[in-house]
Computed example of a mutant assay.
Amino acid sequence: MEAIEEISQFLDIGTRLDLKSIALQHVLSVTGSNDGIELLLSLPEIVRQLVLLVQDNSTSVCKDAALSLINISAYDGGANALLVISETSKMRPDEKPNDNLVHTCLRCILDKQNDLADPCCMILSNLTRAHSLTERILAVVNNSGYAWSAIIAAFTAQKYNEKGATLHYLGPVFSNLSQSITMRRYLLDKEHCVIQRLLPFTEYVESTVRRGGIVGTLKNCCFDTEYHAWLLGPKVDILPRLLLPLAGPEEFNDDDNDKLPIELQYLPENKTRDSDPDIRTMLLEALAQLCATREGREILRDKNVYVILREFHKWEKDRAVLLACENVVDILLKKEEEIGLDNLREVTIPEEYKEKFKKMDEEYINDS
C-alpha cells in the first residue's frame, strides 16, 4: 500500500516522462491480479490518474494507461469505480485531459487519427458488461456531447479509423447496452431504422467479436414483442439475417425452396454455418423470441424456417445449441390451437416449474 501511494506522485500527467513511465509500468503489473486491482481501488486518485494518462502526449504512456484500465474495467468492482469517476467528474466536456472515462473513450473512438480507439472500445465493452450499470452509462453517454448516430456511423463505416483500428469491440458495447429498454428504443426507432444498419454484421467473418456483439444486440431487440411485425416485415426484414448463419449447403425440393426467403434459396455448395456455438445459440434464441407472438410464429412458418432448422439440427453437435434449436422447432410444429395464446410472454410460470425446466435443460446438455 505504501509503495503504491508513493508511486502516485509520479503518475501526474506533468511528471518527467521516464519517471512517469516506470511508475505506470509498475501499476500495470499490479492490475494483473484481482488483489492488485482491489488495492488500486482503495486509492481512487490513482485510478483517476490513469484516466488522465490515457490522454498523455507520450504514445507508450497512453497505451500502458489504457491496458491498465482494460484490466481494471474487466473487474466488476473496477467497472463501477471507473463509472463513479466519470459520473462525478467536474470537468467540462471540452477540457483535455479529462477524467470522465466514458467521454474520453468516445472522443478517442470518434477521432479517426487516434491510436487508442480499439483499447477504448474494449474499456467501454468491459464497463457496459454489468446489467446493473447500463442505465448509468447511458446517462453519461447522453451527457457527453457525442451522438449515438455518430457512434453507429463509425462502427458501420468500412474503414473509419485511419490508423487501422477496427472498432470491433463496439459490437459487445451495443449488445450490453441493448439490455436496456432505453437503448432498444433508439435501435428500434421506426423512423430512423437504426437496427437495419447492423444486420449485415451477422455474417461478418473477419471478427467473432463484432459478429457476436451484433447478434446479441438483435437477440435483445427481439424481446420487444410490439416490434415483431415490423422486424419481420419488409422495412427491416430481420429473418434472413438470423437464418443465413444457420443455413448450410443443403438442397431442398422446389416446393420447400420457394417458401424460403429469397436470400436462402439455392445457396452455394460451399455455404458454411457460423463457426461459433455461442453465436449460433444467440441466433436461435432470437428466433425463439420472435415465436413469442402468434404473428411472429405464423410468419416463421410461412417462410419455412422449419426446413432450415431441420437440416441445422442434423449438422449440429453441441448439446446446448441443439437444445436451443429444439425449443424453436417445438413451437413451430405446434398448431395455434395447441398453443392457445397470442403472446407466450404473457404466461406466468411458477418458480418451482422454472427450476424443474432448468434442471431438465441441464440434464439434456450434460447427457453424453
Results as ranks from 00 to 15, higher is better:
Ile4Arg: 02
Ile7Trp: 11
Asp12Ala: 10
Gly14Cys: 07
Gly14Trp: 00
Ala23Ile: 06
Val27Pro: 06
Val27Thr: 09
Gly32His: 06
Asn34Phe: 13
Ile37Ser: 06
Ile37Glu: 08
Glu38Gln: 13
Leu40Pro: 03
Leu41Gln: 00
Leu43Ser: 11
Val47Trp: 04
Val51Gln: 10
Val51Trp: 05
Leu52Arg: 09
Gln55Ala: 00
Asn71Arg: 08
Ala74Thr: 03
Leu82Ser: 09
Met91Ile: 11
Asp94Gly: 01
Glu95Pro: 00
Lys96Tyr: 09
Lys96Pro: 02
Arg107Glu: 09
Ile109Leu: 02
Lys112Phe: 00
Gln113Tyr: 04
Asn114Ile: 01
Asp118Pro: 01
Met122Ala: 13
Ile123Thr: 03
Ser125Ile: 06
Leu127Cys: 04
His131Leu: 13
His131Ile: 12
Leu138Glu: 07
Ala139Tyr: 07
Asn142Asp: 15
Asn142Cys: 05
Gly145His: 01
Tyr146Leu: 03
Ala147Gln: 11
Ala150Met: 06
Ala154Gly: 01
Thr156Gly: 04
Tyr160Glu: 11
Glu162Asp: 13
Lys163Tyr: 02
Thr166Arg: 14
Val173Phe: 04
Ser175Gln: 15
Thr182Lys: 10
Leu187Lys: 01
Lys190Asp: 11
Glu191Leu: 11
Pro200Gln: 02
Thr202Pro: 10
Val205Arg: 12
Glu206Pro: 03
Glu206Gln: 13
Thr208His: 01
Gly213Ile: 03
Ile214Trp: 09
Ile214Asp: 06
Ile214Ala: 06
Trp230Asp: 05
Val236Tyr: 05
Asp237Met: 02
Leu242Ala: 08
Gly248Cys: 05
Asp254Ala: 13
Asp255Cys: 10
Leu260Phe: 06
Glu263Cys: 02
Leu267Pro: 12
Pro268Cys: 06
Thr272Trp: 05
Arg273Leu: 07
Asp274Ile: 10
Pro277Gly: 14
Pro277Phe: 14
Asp278Cys: 13
Met282Cys: 12
Met282Val: 04
Leu283Lys: 07
Leu283Ile: 09
Leu284Pro: 05
Ile299Leu: 10
Arg301His: 11
Val305Arg: 08
Tyr306Ser: 10
Val307Met: 09
Leu309Cys: 09
Glu311Gln: 14
Lys314Leu: 14
Glu316Gln: 11
Asp318Gln: 13
Arg319Asp: 10
Ile331Trp: 05
Ile339Gly: 03
Ile349Lys: 01
Pro350His: 00
Tyr353Asp: 14
Tyr353Val: 10
Lys354Ile: 15
Lys359Leu: 14
Glu363Val: 11
Asn366Pro: 02
Asn366Trp: 08
Ser368Trp: 09
